[in-house]
Design a protein around this nucleic acid. Structure first.
Lengths: 165, 165
DNA sequence: TATTGTTATACTCTATAACTATA
DNA sequence: TATAGTTATAGAGTATAACAATA
């Protein structure tokens, strides 16, 4: 079975697809990425910001778990972490519990960089919805948050799609 | 001036930032991109799908306008269109009105490929919100569409941010 | 002269395969 | 043997600069 417009009543899938496509396109624009960094700091690529967000929100984490979380190869993670380390934004330490493993964490500079990055983005978004009324802003925030929760299960949804078509 | 939580009442900027970051990360995942294509067709990269969506929705368009629309360099567009042309998804033709220019259009195969890609994505999204009630789905669709409209003006918002900070 | 597009070149991000060190 | 990570190599996607053809 599929969730067609007929079954769901509203083809929200169509409007979601169109909007998310637009959002992803906008997010990748070079001029946008340049805006989302402090004048004194280096610009953060998408991958940089995802990793830093993850690292500041958690205890030191292994390279392998980080690669798995971002769904990239471990060799890709080696390259990326080397770059961030060279920029002084992350640090590595041997795992005392397993001498094969490396524990990665954000440095103070890394935490500052991602915090600025995030606050600039938030300010841009607040400006975007600045003229919306209170109700619409609150509803958008609520539903977007809920959608993010659903997205966490998207791998399963994709699996179901492949199984049932 | 800035649109801080105090001024807007609800810090929707924070929840937007978090969710859009998640969406962008998910969109770029290789396993997700692999899902969004037909078994018999080649996988479409993000850039591929944006370009094809644009091309099927418009008359033949110049390389230069396409590059400007996607905010990439004209040389990047040459490379990308060459790849899509080799895959049989787009066609080029000389512009009769200006012999320097090239007009790009989607082929029948390109239209079919992006249509499948889009319908699979829509189905995934419909599945994601399949358990939401009618009101929430309708509201999400409405507010997301409105947000997309605001996003069209984001370049101006970014400019304002840079001017006023 | 200015514009449209291509080519040459280089850098980033990614993957696969082969390798080292440790478990 | 299996696992954690690195290195070598390659391809996609991007930019800058130099160029050719046309306006």
């Amino acid at each position: 079975m599929e969730n067609t417009p007929q079954e769901t009543g509203v083809d929200v899938g169509e409007s979601i697809e169109a909007t998310l496509s637009l959002i992803a396109r906008w997010s990748s624009r070079a001029d946008n990425r340049r805006t989302l960094h402090d004048a004194e700091g280096a610009a953060l690529s998408s991958t940089d910001s995802w990793l830093l967000e993850r690292l500041v929100a958690s205890k030191p984490i292994r390279m392998s778990r980080l690669a798995e979380w971002l769904s990239v190869d471990k060799s890709t993670m080696t390259t990326e972490i080397r770059r961030l380390e060279a920029a002084g934004l992350v640090a590595r330490a041997p795992d005392p519990a397993d001498r094969r493993a490396v524990l990665v964490s954000a440095t103070e500079a890394g935490a500052i960089a991602i915090d600025r990055h995030r606050r600039i983005a938030q300010d841009v978004y607040n400006t975007l919805v600045g003229k919306w009324n209170e109700h619409d802003r609150a509803e958008f925030s609520r539903l977007l948050g809920r959608f993010a929760d659903e997205l966490s299960w998207v791998t399963d949804a994709v699996w179901r799609h492949n199984e049932t078509r």
